[in-house]
Design a protein around this nucleic acid. Sequence first.
DNA 1: TTGTACGCGTTATCAG
DNA 2: CTGATAACGCGTACAA
Lengths: 343, 343
Amino acid sequence: MTDTAAPPTLDDVARLARVSTATVSRCINSPDRVAASTRARVETAIKTLGYTPNFAARFMAAKRTFTIGAIIPTMENAIFARGLQAFQEELHQRGYTLLVSSSAYKAEAEEEQIRTLVARGADGLLLIGHDRDPQIYDYLAQQHVPVLVAWSYSETARVPSIGFDNRAAMRSLAERMIALGHKRIAMISGISEQNDRARLRIEGVKDAMAAHGLDPERLAPVELPYDVHSGAAAFVDLMSHSPRPSLVLCGNDVLAVGALRGAHQLGLKVPEDVSITGFDDIELAQVVTPELTTVHVPHREMGRKAAQELVGMVEEKRQGVSEKLETTIMERSSVSILRDQSE
Amino acid sequence: MTDTAAPPTLDDVARLARVSTATVSRCINSPDRVAASTRARVETAIKTLGYTPNFAARFMAAKRTFTIGAIIPTMENAIFARGLQAFQEELHQRGYTLLVSSSAYKAEAEEEQIRTLVARGADGLLLIGHDRDPQIYDYLAQQHVPVLVAWSYSETARVPSIGFDNRAAMRSLAERMIALGHKRIAMISGISEQNDRARLRIEGVKDAMAAHGLDPERLAPVELPYDVHSGAAAFVDLMSHSPRPSLVLCGNDVLAVGALRGAHQLGLKVPEDVSITGFDDIELAQVVTPELTTVHVPHREMGRKAAQELVGMVEEKRQGVSEKLETTIMERSSVSILRDQSE
DNA sequence: TTGTACGCGTTATCAG
DNA sequence: CTGATAACGCGTACAA
């Protein structure tokens, strides 16, 4: 128990076990390539010394860290939580450690964190969405760090993605709402700059409107940070216009919950007085009253597949292949039927 | 744009700038110790090469990383999100990067992640709560890595903590409820093994009961994972017993929201038929109907102060000093008044 | 002010 | 199956 000593090194272990450092290293990295007897000796030495490999040294020599980095826009709400959890679990099964950083939806912060994670030897990176300064992709390419994007699917983007078609998903939700008889449609969106999910969801609504004889230009989505408070304020403001919308489509569930609160403040009943929808289907959506009609995203599947693909890219040094995941509309009780739908 | 080349090194920069590697290193780490003219040359070289210092090499040579690690029990709900966000912001201001890992409330996972983060050169560690295998503290001491605990305050623990008194906080909530006339009290708790917050909150309720002539042994808290579904199931089960409790105290807001759902399933009105309380005062508490009576925790203050203290410990190589933060009871609408409270 | 040279703790190559 | 030994990229005495 020499508590003041510096952490033990490979050398210390080697000396104690009366072998060379190479042998100790082998015991750790390919145990089968060393005799059982000596291995036993080494293992005891490791135990008694409380030896832990020095990571930096290992990285310098081997250039691999078995670490994957992920940068998500926020940890403040649960949007990315389930997917990330699944991502981590799958990674862990494959012997990788996940390190997470949050950018607070700020492009510069994200860039800095990308550099940080790469410098720290991340073998691969998971990023959310495609929209970012192209220079970053140059940097990543130069550093030979594989990158995979999640939460957004794109065929044309520079890096592979495991995600869903935000535009199509939102379009089909909007079309369903239109089929239900909603015509006066408003939208509360996340901030679309540097955020393809937000941007594409707006486009999806416009697609639906255009396809059904509504003027997309009249949508005029308001863009705000993804938090409950903003959602509530925007909703209250929206309701002060006339004619009032019969439906408020929200860019995600958090904004939708905010809208629900706004309605509550105004004494408006949902869905009788106004309908509200969300996107993501996080736990929150089923916990509020009324439960939210929203777009279900296969969070866990996405996380799991992203991990598989990213590890594949890292280990086989190959290009990643994109995959589009399916979303489904969850019709719950925050939407009213204005017109009977018998076809 | 030689895209196939390996990342540039100090050596490359030195060659291009026609100086030694030592000079380049100085330009980066103590710019004032080098002549302005040569510094300019070096800086251009760095720019044109797109040089980024290799982190592992730097760590090996300098033994500092300006990285702080944090291991939280979960990212799945927002319990730790706000505090962690504040922690990160404060860290960033001081030039440190935060790396986060989640243990899914599993002790072995946490231990592994502690080792991972230390091996990766974390200058300091933030941990949640005090309950863990003492060996881990030995390891951390041996590695000379400063540790700070948050979300729980203790004077007697081996490591310093910035947190609140979970026991006293829960006790005063329970006392307030008793003062309101509640006598048939049930509790839905998190799993208390290896979780001092959960454990102390149970104790707090028992303290309050004992102090007011109620038998603490009759509390019989049920312990479950912190998720909405578990909370709902436990609540439904609790309500099948007779006599039914008039009040269900929950170990945190997530369980309380679950209880609310359970009540809804049962057709029970809250607070008319049964009262429910939470703990933490996360955003969720104000978003559900009825809004949750709960214990407010100063998340952001805790995160900020934890960052300050931990950086202090790292930079000044000193023992950390603990601080107890205040909590307050937020009385909202999930609790009924059974008895008039004029004193 | 600048350069030389060594050490940090591993892994990997190559003999033995 | 095992042992020397050369990298890996950088910081820093020490020397010039």
